[in-house]
């Protein structure tokens, strides 16, 4: 399970704002929880289950990180927008664009967009895993996709990009 889903957990952790350095800690913690809680897995969507665990482990991580920052008076730098075309073409650009976009989505749309369009999970499986009506999932995905396409137009448009 670790072999098959570690990258998925890493991506979800990063989408929730965990930095690469700490994301590995989150991956470790998530699979530790999985090991202990595997008997509670109900046989529905495995990725939805992992997504939920990751989300909670990240929340826990953020609380700990916030305490550390308060102690150290340290503030994480705000990511700079990507303006360089070459950088945009690079892998790092794709990571930044996608994760910045995902961060703008509300929780409902984010979950569906991540599971469906980023991870390729079938829609019925998502609906079952989240306990949602199929139409609800389609509706949320439609809205998220529309926003994603609009964001892509903005990223590729020099006028919009450069203001």
């Amino acid at each position: 399970m670790y072999r098959d889903h570690a990258d998925f957990v890493l991506r979800v952790a990063c989408q929730f704002g965990v930095g690469q350095a700490h994301a590995e800690d989150v991956v470790h913690d998530v699979f530790l929880v999985v090991h202990r809680r595997l008997h509670e897995y109900d046989g529905r969507s495995l990725r939805s289950w992992l997504y939920g665990i990751t989300r909670r482990v990240v929340a826990h991580h953020h609380r700990g990180a916030a305490r550390t920052r308060r102690r150290e008076h340290d503030h994480a730098p705000v990511p700079r927008p990507i303006a360089d075309p070459e950088q945009r073409a690079a892998m790092a650009g794709a990571v930044a664009i996608v994760e910045r976009f995902v961060a703008t989505l509300d929780e409902a749309q984010r979950t569906v967009f991540v599971l469906a369009d980023i991870e390729g999970t079938p829609i019925p499986e998502i609906a079952e895993g989240l306990g949602l009506n199929l139409n609800t999932v389609y509706s949320r995905l439609r809205l998220a996709r529309r926003r994603f396409e609009a964001m892509l137009v903005g990223v590729r448009s020099p006028e919009v990009r450069d203001g």
Partner: peptide, 28 residues
Amino acid sequence: PIDDVATSSPTPRSIDGASPPGPIPAPI
């Protein structure tokens, strides 16, 4: 604490508010 985090609800259903938060999932 991580265990506690996972125990609260291991599935992401509650994040949408569409389903009431449930107890530990039913037996397989």
